[in-house]
Each structure stands twice: as C-alpha cells, then as structure tokens.
Simulated assay, not measured.
Amino acid sequence: MRQTYTFTPGEIRSDSSYTQAEFERITGLGRAAIRAARRRGLTVRRVGRTNYIIGREWNDYLAKFGEVVAS
C-alpha cells in the first residue's frame, strides 16, 4: 500500500527524498537555482529519467552555503 505524505510549503525533511519537480514546488526554487546549487556541491541523484534530491543532502548544503540573515 502506497503511503502519501503532506508537506508544509518550504519544509524539506532530512529523512525524505524528493523528485526535482517536487523539490522545486516545495522550495520555490527554479531550475537555474538548482543548477547553480549543483555546481556548488548539491548532490542530485538520477534513477531512470527522474532526478531526486535527498532532504539530508539539501539541509547539509543549506547549512554550508546558505546566507545567514540577521533579524
């Protein structure tokens, strides 16, 4: 039986994987931004014709390259 999950917009869970299309929708990032992130070290995995992004790898990338914003 297939499980379905609901995602909070902007929430990337470390224990989940996302197709690139799902990832773009959840984060609001476009293909150009993801390409730039790949060039800087974000790992994108491919199975068949589908690209996947592992949540843990995105969160690690964000911790390393994300800009800290003072509040």
Rank of each mutant, 00 (worst) to 15 (best):
A33N: 14
D60T: 06
N59W: 01
G48H: 11
S17R: 12
R40D: 13
R49D: 15
M1Q: 06
R25G: 04
D15P: 00
E22I: 00
E22V: 01
T8V: 03
I53L: 05
A36H: 14
T27D: 08
S71N: 12
G66E: 05
Y5V: 13
S14L: 00
R40M: 12
E24L: 10
A63G: 08
Q3E: 02
E22N: 04
I54D: 13
R56E: 10
V68W: 09
A33P: 06
T8P: 00
D60R: 07
R45Q: 14
R46K: 14
P9S: 04
A21V: 03
F65N: 13
N59H: 04
R13T: 04
S14E: 10
Y61I: 05
R25D: 12
I34P: 02
R2I: 04
R13F: 04
I12W: 01
R49T: 15
T6G: 08
V44G: 04
N59F: 00
I12D: 01
S16T: 01
N51L: 09
M1F: 10
D60L: 01
S16E: 08
I12E: 00
N51W: 03
I12F: 02
R2D: 03
G28E: 04
N59A: 01
Y61L: 11
G66V: 07
A37I: 05
Y18E: 02
G10W: 03
D60A: 09
G48P: 13
A32N: 13
T19Y: 09
N59S: 05
V69L: 13
L62C: 00
Q3Y: 03
A21M: 01
G66K: 05
Y5F: 15
T6V: 06
L29A: 07
A36T: 12
F7N: 08
A70W: 05
P9F: 02
G48D: 15
S17Q: 10
W58Q: 01
L62A: 10
R13G: 01
E24V: 04
V44A: 12
T19C: 04
T50W: 04
S14H: 02
G30A: 10
G66C: 09
G55H: 09
G41C: 08
R35G: 06
W58T: 01
L42Q: 13
R38Y: 10
L42T: 13
